[in-house]
């Protein structure tokens, strides 16, 4: 593109000054910098990312695209596949909704109140990030099985928790909780007390202040936390397989069905389920980005 020049005229004292700048309107990939190492670090990042993440994911895309629409549709609408997807998404939804309530409550209690052991509670929220899923899975099963401490409590009433969809929900509440708390907590810490004081001086009672003034501001954070917990729960495998019972159409989750298809060497069947799940996950990721863009515009904070 051709270079163009700009003329600025301005007055300093009595003199009229003319400043002419020549500006190259050339498209640049990168702004110049004195710091060395862009080629090395950028190159390594792109190469490593492509080899580890991008090419394998594209390979999966090509494999499923190779089936054609009809073939893909036939595999994807297999009753067992639909059943597994339904189980995965419905249990993930319920668990994420439970986490919305308790995660927000926990974030609130941790930010607003001072009580003995608060720091320990705050630290232990991250346990599901640190505890391997298989360990969580067998521990939850031991607790909620009919002979476990909580399972035995419910057993006399004829309520079974482990080896039913209820068990899946419990495991998914466990893995999703920190996503909710850790998304809402920092936003709540930033809320200015003036807003609440203004609401109070204008005659709102505490309940009105919380529900009409504070919670609307937390909406983007709660929605993002919900989406993160939901996305994690849909793909979760380790903590669920032990407690689920794994009965097709009832308590068989989609990731488990992928593993089963692979063990049958039915690679096509596994690929189709994976492709469906990936499409939904990426749609969720896109929605999370939309929420954040909306949040920046509407509430002036990004997560």
């Amino acid at each position: 593109m051709a270079a163009f020049s700009t003329r600025f005229t301005f007055r300093r004292g009595n003199r009229r000054m003319v400043l002419t700048t020549r500006k190259r309107a050339r498209w640049r990939f990168r702004q110049p910098s004195v710091i060395p190492g862009f080629g090395l670090t950028f190159g390594f990042m792109i190469a490593y990312f492509s080899l580890i993440i991008l090419i394998p994911l594209i390979a999966l895309g090509i494999r499923s695209a190779g089936l054609g629409f009809d073939g893909f549709w036939r595999y994807a609408t297999d009753p067992r596949v639909l059943g597994a997807l339904r189980v995965s998404f419905s249990t993930a939804l319920i668990a994420a909704l439970v986490n919305v309530v308790f995660g927000t409550l926990l974030a609130w209690v941790l930010v607003r109140y001072r009580f003995p052991g608060r720091r320990i509670v705050d630290a232990i929220i991250d346990l599901p990030f640190a505890l391997p899923t298989a360990v969580a899975g067998i521990a939850l099963t031991a607790i909620y099985a009919p002979n476990g401490p909580i399972g035995a409590f419910f057993a006399p009433f004829g309520i079974r928790l482990a080896y039913t969809p209820a068990g899946i929900v419990i495991a998914l509440i466990f893995v999703g909780l920190p996503f909710m708390v850790r998304t809402v907590q920092p936003v709540l810490e930033e809320v200015q007390h003036e807003i609440e004081e203004a609401a109070a001086t204008l005659g709102a009672n505490r309940w009105q202040t919380v529900t009409r003034v504070l919670l609307p501001g937390l909406t983007p954070a709660i929605l993002t936390g919900f989406a993160l917990a939901f996305a994690r729960a849909v793909g979760e495998y380790g903590s669920v397989v032990f407690i689920a019972g794994n009965i097709p159409l009832v308590s068989e989750i989609a990731p488990l069905l992928i593993v089963i298809r692979l063990e049958e060497f039915n690679y096509v069947g596994a690929t189709v389920i994976a492709a469906v799940m990936l499409m939904i996950s990426f749609a969720l990721l896109f929605i999370i980005n939309l929420i954040q863009a909306w949040s920046r515009r509407r509430f002036g904070y990004a997560l």
């Binding site: 849909v234 495998y237 990731p255 992928i258 994976a274 799940m277 990936l278």
Partner: peptide, 8 residues
């Protein structure tokens, strides 16, 4: 990778 199921 955080939005991809570990199984996938």
């Amino acid at each position: 990778p955080f939005s991809v199921s570990p199984v996938i």
